[in-house]
């Protein structure tokens, strides 16, 4: 199960971070390492996209779908919070 693996890894990292087992200098280096690993992964993701001819030729369609999905996710999130907001804080 991939999900379980992800949760365990996240939890181990969380524990190490919470316990402050890393000195600030090490944390700074970890930050750089994190950015580098993120960029490497995004490069690999890009390669995966480039290898798939169909994605390249349907880029416009995917872009349109993306904007519709983004708009729907924002509108429904706002509605969702609106439904509970009066019970969470008092606001004018």
């Amino acid at each position: 199960m991939d999900i379980l693996l992800y949760v365990i890894i996240l939890a181990i990292g969380g524990f190490l971070g919470y316990r402050r087992l890393f000195k600030p200098a090490v944390m700074n280096r970890l930050d750089t390492l994190q950015n580098l690993s993120l960029l490497l992964l995004l490069f690999i993701m890009g390669v995966n996209i480039g290898l798939d001819q169909e994605v390249i030729y349907t880029f416009g369609t995917i872009g349109f779908q993306a904007i519709v999905l983004a708009a729907f996710s924002i509108v429904f999130s706002v509605i969702g919070v609106k439904l509970v907001s009066s019970r969470i804080i008092k606001q004018k």
Partner: peptide, 15 residues
């Protein structure tokens, strides 16, 4: 790669 990234994210959240 995802596992490595999640480890760092975990540290960030814990921190």
């Amino acid at each position: 790669g995802l596992c490595i990234l999640l480890f760092f994210v975990g540290i960030d959240i814990g921190n």
